[in-house]
Design a protein around this nucleic acid. Structure first.
Lengths: 217, 217
DNA sequence: GTCTATACTTGGATAGAC
DNA sequence: GTCTATCCAAGTATAGAC
């Protein structure tokens, strides 16, 4: 029972828990700037200002630390998303919030962490399912938000929510990768602007036209 | 002049050119199954059935071989895309072809190669711009195809082609990553099916309604 | 052009002192 | 809990024989 495993959260000492946190933060930062390939135990420890051996003492392996980092990011973002969600009641607001949140995610590189983990999952055996399990909440959240954002819009009846939310997560991921690749976010932000305008147009239509009924035949 | 650099294509001997090809193919295959992290000179050489040192003799470095592999994949896919493009004249056909091509790409893992290279570009200095340059043609092709696929549809006047084609490439990338992650393509294929139905609906509308003019005010 | 052998580096992981 | 020291595996890259 000397070594705290991945599962044991109550590690004991205040200093110990502190080191855990510092390591997680350092792992996130390293993942963002160096990518999955560059995120070694040594690189993380250097950034955390502590010793490389502590990674293994606290988390058992590098991958497990990385998963803890993903957990942390996931929790932070879901908290943020959930706070922003209640204000959404129509497509226009939906796009406005999505655009804002995307900008934030890009600024602090949260989606990068996710993207790098997905990429790394190809090579590390057993990592795939773990990452997949941590993405599920994001898609669930997307589904709920889209549902309430569409409101009574006629679109709600034709759009398959499951597929659309999956596509939204995929698009989010892809946009991040491309932006990160050529260090240029303008394409993505421009896309959000145009989408916002279309959503406003859509809102105007759905407020004049009646919600989908069978009378139109 | 003994060693052929990355630039020199006319390496000379038939056997030499053959080895080059074999190495490129092996690199593609390794990238698909092992990911960027697992694609070492040794892994590639083992799959190619030759010696590890040949990677450096023919390509100078592993990254340069990987870039050659990306070139090969890019060329193959653009050839395929270009062949399929002429048959597209309306949104419904556009989606049908896109769906078919996506299935192919998933089967032979071409997008995986691209995704892995993008992920790896975060860690390898100087790789980013090289990969970005090789993606540009894909986006250009997407733009042209979408343009001709939309035809006289009213959508053509409201959709910003540049942003949409960027989004399409991003979506393509994201869908591939997610599918690859949980080894399940059903979400993506289902998405294409639904999109196809919507496109058909759209085609029906645009054939009855007049193309966008100013008379509607 | 292709091989073997090897130098050099980095990273994961553990043992043991403090 | 944290450190130093160390082992071992795997990778890049080069030299030199064939």
């Amino acid at each position: 029972m000397g070594k705290p495993g991945v599962a044991s959260r109550r590690a004991g000492t205040a200093a110990g828990n502190d080191t855990r946190r510092v390591l997680v933060v350092a792992a996130i930062e390293t993942l963002k700037t160096e990518g999955f390939v560059g995120t070694s135990a040594r690189a993380i420890a250097k950034r955390a200002g502590c010793n490389q051996a502590l990674v293994f003492y606290h988390f058992g392996s590098v991958v497990d630390l990385l998963l803890a980092a993903l957990d942390e990011v996931s929790a932070r973002r879901l908290e943020r998303y959930t706070a922003a969600a209640p204000s959404i009641t129509n497509p226009s607001e939906l796009l406005a919030v999505a655009s804002e949140v995307f900008a934030e995610d890009m600024d602090n590189g949260y989606v990068t962490v996710l993207a790098e983990m997905i990429g790394g999952a190809s090579a590390t055996p057993g990592l795939g399912p773990e990452v997949a399990r941590r993405i599920a909440p994001w898609r669930d959240f997307a589904r709920d938000t889209i549902e309430s954002g569409l409101g009574g819009s006629p679109l709600a009846s034709v759009l398959p929510l499951g597929e659309v939310s999956h596509a939204v997560v995929a698009l989010y991921l892809g946009l991040e990768m491309l932006s990160h690749l050529d260090g240029d976010r303008s394409q993505a932000t421009s896309l959000f602007e145009h989408a916002g305008r279309l959503a406003a147009l859509l809102g105007a239509i759905s407020s004049t036209a009646p919600p989908a009924t069978k009378e139109t035949s």
